[in-house]
Structure formats: structure tokens, C-alpha cells
């Protein structure tokens, strides 16, 4: 177990969260959410650490990580651009936004730019269908987005 030798990589808050949930049945998903909250993704090292702390096989953790789309096992860009591909946004051209962003950034869906600044992701209905098509960057939501606005949105975060 490599994690045993290494310093615990988790913050004090995260460790106490894990301690609090340790003996609750069905805790794994909640703990992985918290890990992702801290790091933006669940790295191999972090998964090792959770396995060690909960004394469960790493395979069980990867079983869960790989089943749920929400969990990321690779580092996203500094700014993760999420384009809504829910039904309303799809009808209003959400897929074109993905295409255009892809060509502007030189990446495909679920990829990260070389400099690590941006990543591109498709998500499902974010609850603003009236504003379709919608994309979000961090906490900011952009509604009724047209292709022409995309360079401006990107430069806002560059």
C-alpha cells in the first residue's frame, strides 16, 4: 500500500469528513463527491488514499467511479465549459455550440486544452430551458448563446 508511506494528501476538512462518514453504510459515493469537490477530480492517488482510509479494495472504488458520469478521473481544465445538451438546448443548437467551441479551442468533448486552461463537457438540462441554448463556465450561466458570442466568452476567462 503506497498510501501508507506517503503523507496524507487530503485537507483536514476532508479527513474529518471521511471520519464522520466512515461507519455509515453507503458512504462511498458521498466521500468521493467530497474528494472531487476538493481536487476537481479523483486522481489515482486520491482513490488509493480513500481505499486505505476506508479499508476497502481499490477495485470497489473504481467500480463506482467508472459507473457514474459525474466523477472525473482526470484533471479538468482551469475553466470547465459545460454545454447543455438537454432536449431543449439540443433543439436550439447546443450541439453546434459544442462543435464551434471545439474548433475554437482545438479540443473535442471531454478533452482539455494543452495549456490546461479549458476543458469542454456536455451536460444535461441545467434547468434554464427558457434560455436555451445554455452553457456554463464555473458558476456563471450564459443563456441564448449564439456562435458569435463564443470567442467573447472564451476571452473573458483567458
Amino acid at each position: 500500500m503506497s498510501a501508507k508511506k506517503k503523507e496524507n494528501m487530503f485537507s483536514r476538512e476532508l479527513i474529518s469528513f471521511i471520519e464522520k462518514w466512515r461507519n455509515k453504510p453507503g458512504n462511498l459515493i458521498m466521500i468521493l463527491h467530497q474528494v472531487q469537490e476538493e481536487f476537481g477530480y479523483v486522481s489515482r492517488e486520491a482513490a488509493d488514499q480513500v481505499a486505505y482510509m476506508l479499508d476497502i479494495p481499490l477495485a470497489k472504488i473504481y467500480g463506482v467511479l467508472s459507473f457514474y458520469h459525474f466523477f472525473k478521473t482526470t484533471k479538468p481544465g482551469d475553466h470547465n465549459i459545460q454545454v447543455c445538451l438537454g432536449t431543449a438546448c439540443y433543439l436550439k443548437g447546443g450541439d453546434m455550440l459544442v462543435e464551434e467551441l471545439g474548433s475554437l479551442l482545438g479540443i473535442g468533448l471531454n478533452e482539455v486544452t494543452e495549456d490546461g486552461r479549458f476543458s469542454l463537457e456536455g451536460v444535461r438540462c441545467v434547468g434554464c430551458c427558457g434560455l436555451a441554448p445554455v452553457l456554463t463556465v464555473g458558476k456563471e450561466v450564459f443563456g441564448k448563446v449564439t456562435k458569435d458570442q463564443l470567442p467573447g466568452i472564451i476571452s473573458k476567462f483567458s
Binding site: 453504510p25 453507503g26 459515493i29 468521493l32 463527491h33 457514474y68 458520469h69 459525474f70
Partner: peptide, 22 residues
């Protein structure tokens, strides 16, 4: 309990498995 982006977890038996951490 938080879901993690799997549509099938809306199905009740899958949802229960998910609450159980599986």
C-alpha cells in the same frame, strides 16, 4: 444522498443500490 449523474439511478431499485454506495 447525492446522485452522480447516472440516469438509470432514477429507476427505483438502481436508486436504492446507489444510496447503498454501489
Amino acid at each position: 444522498r447525492l446522485g452522480a449523474g447516472a440516469f438509470v439511478c432514477g429507476e427505483e431499485t438502481a436508486l436504492l443500490a446507489s444510496i447503498e454506495g454501489k
